[in-house]
């Protein structure tokens, strides 16, 4: 069970400064709009925090674009906003760049083959719940999520959406619990980001002989024969000796997955 509460809180409070600018080709006004600045939670998703951004820029684009879905770009790459914000930052932010993280806002030519169309909050919620369910299938054969009531699901979602740590964790702790007869999950829910996507694999937190597996074991299983793999999550490089079970309980994103960016 996730006991290091200070760490959970620290992770929850991780925020990033972002500046949003409308693509200059899309400005239909004679004035350039001012950039829009926001501090955004690393654990959230862009469509949950960009309502104000959209409102700010809408009046500067032509009428025919106003109904179109907004999307974001950084260094020529569209942002896959079904990834948590912190994951996008750890994956994409160039070390030569300075904060705030400067993103370009578009309304035209939505890159629909790469980016999800979230036309309303229910769709983001459905996606988030699908991830959470999958994580629970890996950890507890799906038994915890399916035994929860709709109000618990709502509480998780509202906790994330409204940035309420206590609301979220009072339900999430059940998902982070271990079955009575074990002190670990069945498999560790994680995604390892490489190339243009990510890989998953069924990896147990404990070896055949009962030894607790570490992050190093996970990386060896994912990338056999490659020694110098390092992964970044929440903006840091966790030590390779960190036990997987502890990592999963404390450093997972709200979707209950560890998101590990291979550097």
């Amino acid at each position: 069970m996730a006991n290091d509460r200070e760490i959970l809180r620290e992770i929850w409070e991780g925020k990033l400064p972002v500046s949003f600018r409308l693509d200059s080709d899309e400005v239909a006004d004679f004035r350039e709009p001012d950039p829009f600045y926001l501090m955004v939670p690393r654990l959230s998703y862009f469509p949950l925090v960009t309502d104000k951004v959209k409102k700010h820029f809408l009046k500067y684009v032509t009428n025919d674009k106003q109904d179109q879905e907004m999307w974001l770009e950084y260094n020529g790459q569209p942002l896959k906003w079904h990834y948590p914000i912190g994951v996008l930052y750890d994956l994409m932010f160039s070390t030569e760049d300075l904060l705030p993280w400067s993103l370009t806002v578009h309304f035209d030519k939505f890159p629909e083959s790469e980016v999800y169309k979230f036309s309303n909050k229910e769709m983001i919620e459905a996606y988030f719940m699908a991830c959470l369910k999958e994580a629970d299938v890996l950890k507890h054969r799906g038994q915890i999520v399916s035994s929860m009531q709709k109000k618990d699901h709502n509480q998780l979602w509202m906790g994330l959406q409204n940035d309420k740590f206590d609301q979220f964790w009072s339900v999430n702790r059940k998902l982070m619990d271990c079955p009575a007869e074990f002190d670990h999950f069945k498999y560790i829910p994680f995604r390892c980001y490489v190339d243009d996507g990510y890989r998953q694999k069924l990896i147990k937190p404990v070896a055949e002989d009962g030894r607790k597996k570490t992050l190093r074991d996970l990386l060896n299983e994912m990338f056999p024969g490659r020694n110098s793999v390092r992964v970044k999550t929440h903006g840091m490089f966790p030590p390779l000796e960190t036990p997987l079970q502890w990592l999963s309980e404390h450093l997972s994103y709200p979707d209950n997955f560890l998101h590990l960016c291979v550097i």
């Binding site: 079904h82 790469e114 980016v115 169309k117 769709m123 996606y127 699908a130 996507g197 990510y198």
Partner: peptide, 11 residues
């Protein structure tokens, strides 16, 4: 729902 393709990782 929209989900990532298990191999292609696209929506």
């Amino acid at each position: 729902t929209q989900l990532d393709h298990p191999v292609l990782c696209q929506p």
